[in-house]
Amino acid sequence: MNLPDNLLDPALHWLGWGLFAAVFLLALRRAPWGRLGDSAQSNVWLGTIVILTLLWSIKAGVLPGLDLHLLGAMTFTLEFGPWLAFVGLSLVLAGITVNGAAGWESFGLNALVMAGLPVLLAYGIYRFNQRRLSKNPFVFIFANGFFGSALTILATGVAASALLYLGGAYPLEKLLDDYLPYFLLLGFSEAWLTGMVVTILVVYRPQWISTFDDSIYLAKK
């Protein structure tokens, strides 16, 4: 994650920018911007961006592109849905890129790997849990906040490793030995943090989580 410039082929950077631009424009059109007309909701959205920018700035890594940091994609997606979450995470990436933690040439690829894919996975996991599992607040918290967030960051790690390998940045053996295994530890940290945040929000601020419907999850409970 946090791909710097000149690590991959320039053609991949152009492809990443093209795909990102298409998805970002779609997100701008589909996002429920009316929700941010509420000052409380807009403050939560902006506050989440600021907090995640700080969180993404805390990273570990020894080689270019082999950085590790928490994502918070599941929390953002549960709060505001996929479109606003994707736009928000793109702004988070812009913030750390300005600080020099990533490259502008690779911004499109970084956005697809660290924003687009995690949000897509997070929302897919949420929809699966909503359809297949019991409508219970505890199930919502554990299936999405804990297990869902861990699966999201693990899948992101696999995608990042695949991109680095296919792009010729590092050999597969190095990625399997020195990079991908650490996403297991990162997944535990992501699950603990996201689960804690989702629990607090469900209990004290359920109106901040657009995917948590009181009439569904608390009816007859």
Rank of each mutant, 00 (worst) to 15 (best):
A21V: 13
L133E: 01
E79N: 13
A159W: 06
F128V: 12
R205K: 15
L3I: 12
A162Y: 13
T97G: 03
V113D: 07
G157N: 01
N129L: 09
I216Y: 09
L25S: 13
W17D: 03
D178P: 00
G37Y: 09
L218D: 08
L185S: 15
G88I: 12
A159I: 03
F212M: 07
A169Q: 07
P137I: 04
I49N: 08
V158E: 04
L8Y: 07
P181Q: 07
A22L: 15
G65I: 01
A22S: 13
P137F: 02
F142K: 00
M74C: 02
S189Q: 09
G116A: 15
L175M: 01
I153F: 02
S90E: 04
S161A: 15
S90L: 00
T97Y: 05
A160K: 00
A115F: 06
H69F: 11
L55W: 12
D5I: 06
D9I: 08
L28I: 13
N6F: 13
N136I: 09
F146P: 01
T156E: 02
G168M: 11
I153A: 03
A73K: 05
Y217K: 05
D38R: 14
T77H: 03
G81H: 10
A122R: 01
F212V: 09
V139W: 08
R127A: 12
Y126S: 04
D38W: 12
T75M: 11
H69A: 09
E79A: 15
T152L: 00
L218R: 11
K59A: 05
Y182F: 14
S106R: 02
E79M: 15
E105A: 13
N43D: 15
L166T: 12
L46S: 04
L176N: 03
N110I: 03
L186W: 04
Y204S: 05
P181H: 08
G124Q: 09
G16Q: 10
V202M: 14
N6S: 12
F20L: 04
V23S: 04
G124N: 02
F212Y: 11
T97S: 11
M1C: 07
E105D: 14
V197M: 14
Y179A: 03
A31D: 03
L66W: 05
P10R: 06
K135F: 06
Y126V: 01
K174F: 09
A102F: 02
G148W: 01
P4S: 06
W33T: 10
L89M: 14
I153C: 01
D38P: 12
G16F: 11
I125L: 15
L68G: 08
H13L: 08
A219K: 12
L12Y: 10
V87Q: 05
I141A: 01
S90A: 12
W83R: 08
W33D: 07
G37C: 08
L15H: 06
T152Q: 00
S215K: 11
G65M: 01
Y126C: 03
H13A: 08
L117G: 02
V23P: 01
A85I: 04
P32M: 13
Y204W: 11
